[in-house]
Design a protein around this nucleic acid. Structure first.
Lengths: 197, 197
DNA sequence: ACCTGAACACCGTTCAAGT
DNA sequence: ACCTGAACACCGTTCAAGT
């Protein structure tokens, strides 16, 4: 990449981070380009989609999350490691308001620039979940996709101004559901779970 | 209302229901007006905001939900009544893709045309929750706003194509958290809950 | 190589002018 | 009373023309 191109790339990224932090993930790309002092077409040439821009902004965080998952798997109890990592994920996914909806779409859209990061994140979560399940610390009727979905839902709740004050508490509520070791996967339907045959 | 205005009103509403069912809640109002054969300004005169249009579309469902809450409170066990009603809520909030985000914003925006419906819905849920809590069937550290938030989160999950296949299962997971009678409100932090002093 | 202005087809808002 | 076309200020996409 040419020196002037590199400079544009980095400057646009810095401005985009500031604008998206303020206005959320649907911020006007034209506005970002304007504030960065480049043409809109230049922004689009460096980051061909909104997802590509977000992935560039979050790449470092995603890598940190993956590294953290590896460390937690050896340094903490299966239960603590899982919950602590989930909290980190929610915090990360909340960094830019609205990004979690893009991530939900990206997880099964191989064309999305966010796809690889989301898949990696789900895989790291799946490993921590499996470890907790093997230790009897997490319910066994959920998988990595469910975990990703629950994290996404919690991040979404944090994005909504009306729910933000309760989002930490709601994290605990959902976390307790994940940790409930052998909780009935038939919480309703049958009023009282029948004894195992 | 004049007869021709009434006819426009009803026809626009019918077309809007079809278009929003197909394209979600961010469907182009211009497109709706076009398909209804009226000017965009006419649509805006009948429904001054997107929320007003949605409220008109969902009004019947909201009223049904309130009525159902009353019936369930007398005809079913506290636990069954709560879970059954929550399921109805999620189904309702999923009728139009994306509407749950508008509802989340409307619950604390008194100016929104959806505000009253959301507040009524939260109140009905709060009553069913209190009944279940009094019966020892629901955890006591959540309130009506938390319940509204959890329903919204589940509806949001159902809106995301990648999570839709698991949305029923995720409902059960979250429902089990709500029903866990005296589940620790400190699921993490302390690894093992200390004995009550 | 890299950048950019301009044209394009959209969007929701607003209002003067019509019936 | 009610309706509407048109002007307005936006949006993201695309590309021919410049350096």
């Amino acid at each position: 990449m040419r020196a002037d191109a590199r400079k544009n790339h980095d400057h646009v990224l810095a401005v985009a981070g500031a604008v998206i932090t303020e206005h959320g993930v649907d911020a006007s790309l034209r506005d970002i380009a304007r504030r960065a002092g480049v043409g809109l077409a230049t922004l689009l040439r460096h980051f061909p989609t909104r997802e590509a821009l977000l992935d560039a902004l979050l790449r470092t965080r995603f890598d940190e999350l993956t590294a953290t998952a590896g460390e937690l798997a050896t340094s903490n109890s299966p239960e603590d490691a899982l919950v602590s990592w989930l909290r980190d994920c929610v915090t990360c996914a909340r960094e830019y308001r609205g990004v979690v909806a893009l991530m939900a779409a990206a997880i099964e859209d191989a064309e999305s620039a966010l796809h690889a990061s989301c898949v990696t994140m789900r895989a790291a979560g799946t490993r921590l979940l499996a470890r907790a399940q093997a230790a009897g610390a997490a319910r066994t009727d959920i998988d990595g996709t469910d975990l990703f979905a629950l994290v996404a839902a919690l991040a979404w709740l944090g994005d909504q101004a009306s729910f933000t004050p309760r989002s930490d508490h709601l994290f605990d509520v959902v976390a307790s559901a994940i940790l409930a070791s052998a909780e009935s996967s038939e919480a309703e339907g049958e009023r009282r779970p029948r004894a195992r045959s």
